[in-house]
C-alpha cells in the first residue's frame, strides 16, 4: 500500500536528496554560527555603553546586518551568483548553495546572538572587571559562557530557517529535498513525490528542534 501511495518516489534518489539537505544545513550552520557570533559580538561590544563602544563600527555592522536581512533569500542567491562562481567554481550542487546560505542566515543569527548577550547580567561583567579580567576573558568566559543557552536556542531557530533556505536553493539547482520536490515532483505532476519530500523536511525540522531544545535545557543552570 505504501508503495502504491508513493508510486513515483525513487527511494534511492530520495535518500540522496535527504543527505544533501542535511549536508547543506549542517555545513551552512557551522559557517552561520562562526560569522553570527562574530557579528553579534561586534554589535554588542560596540553598542553605546559597551566595552568597545564605537558609533562608527556599530553603525556599519548594523547596516550590513539589516541590509542582508532585508534581501529575500531567493534574490540573494541570484545576486551572489558571481561570488559563488568565483568561490566554488560552479553554480550547481549542494556546495554552491553554501555561501548564499551562510550570508543569508549569519546576519539573522547575529541579531539573535546580540539579544542573547544583552541578557547577560551587567553586574557579572562588572564583577569580572573588578577582578581584573582582560577583555578577552570577559568575552569568552563571561559573555559567551553565560549566554550559551540563548546562543544554542538561537542556533536552533536559525537551523530551521536554514532548512527552509536549502529548499529554496534547491529550486535553483542546489540539490536536496527542495530540488527533488520541484523537478521530480511538481514539474512531473507527481504529487506523491512532493508530499514525501515535505514529510521528510518536517521530520528533519523536528529532529533539529528536539536536539536544540534538549541541549538548551541541559546547558541552562539558571
Amino acid at each position: 500500500m505504501f508503495n502504491q501511495l508513493f508510486a513515483n518516489v525513487e527511494w534511492s534518489d530520495m535518500l540522496v536528496a535527504t543527505i544533501e539537505t542535511f549536508y547543506m544545513t549542517l555545513l551552512a550552520l557551522v559557517g552561520t554560527f562562526i560569522f553570527g557570533i562574530i557579528l553579534g559580538l561586534l554589535l554588542y561590544l560596540t553598542s553605546p555603553g559597551g566595552i568597545w563602544q564605537n558609533k562608527g563600527i556599530n553603525f556599519v555592522v548594523a547596516t550590513i546586518v539589516n541590509v542582508f536581512r532585508a534581501i529575500p533569500f531567493v534574490i540573494l542567491i541570484l545576486l551572489l551568483f558571481p561570488f559563488t562562481d568565483f568561490l566554488i567554481g560552479t553554480l550547481r550542487g549542494p556546495n554552491a548553495a553554501i555561501p548564499a546560505l551562510i550570508i543569508g542566515s549569519a546576519p539573522f543569527y547575529g541579531r539573535l546572538v546580540e539579544i542573547g548577550l544583552r541578557e547577560v547580567n551587567k553586574g557579572v561583567i562588572e564583577a569580572a572587571k573588578s577582578m581584573g579580567a582582560k577583555t578577552s576573558t570577559i568575552i569568552f568566559k563571561v559573555l559567551l559562557k553565560e549566554s550559551t543557552p540563548a546562543l544554542v536556542s538561537g542556533l536552533t531557530v536559525t537551523a530551521i530557517a536554514l532548512i527552509g533556505y536549502t529548499a529554496v536553493a534547491g529550486i535553483i539547482g542546489a540539490g536536496g529535498l527542495g530540488d527533488y520536490a520541484y523537478y521530480y515532483g511538481f514539474q512531473r505532476r507527481a504529487n506523491d513525490v512532493v508530499l514525501m519530500c515535505t514529510i521528510l523536511i518536517v521530520i528533519i525540522v523536528f529532529v533539529f528542534q528536539f536536539i536544540g531544545d534538549a541541549l538548551t535545557n541541559k546547558l541552562d543552570k539558571r
Binding site: 553586574g123 564583577a127 569580572a128 573588578s130 577582578m131 579580567a133 568566559k141 553565560e146 539558571r222
Partner: peptide, 26 residues
C-alpha cells in the same frame, strides 16, 4: 582589591567551586 555586591553577581553557568576559581584563573 576584592569586591562583593548587593546582588552577588555570580556566574550562574559555574558551580560554587568554579565561581571561586574564576579570579584565580584571571
Amino acid at each position: 582589591i576584592g569586591m562583593i555586591f548587593q546582588h552577588f553577581n555570580l556566574l550562574w553557568s559555574r558551580t560554587v567551586r568554579e565561581n571561586i576559581m574564576f579570579p584565580l584563573e584571571i
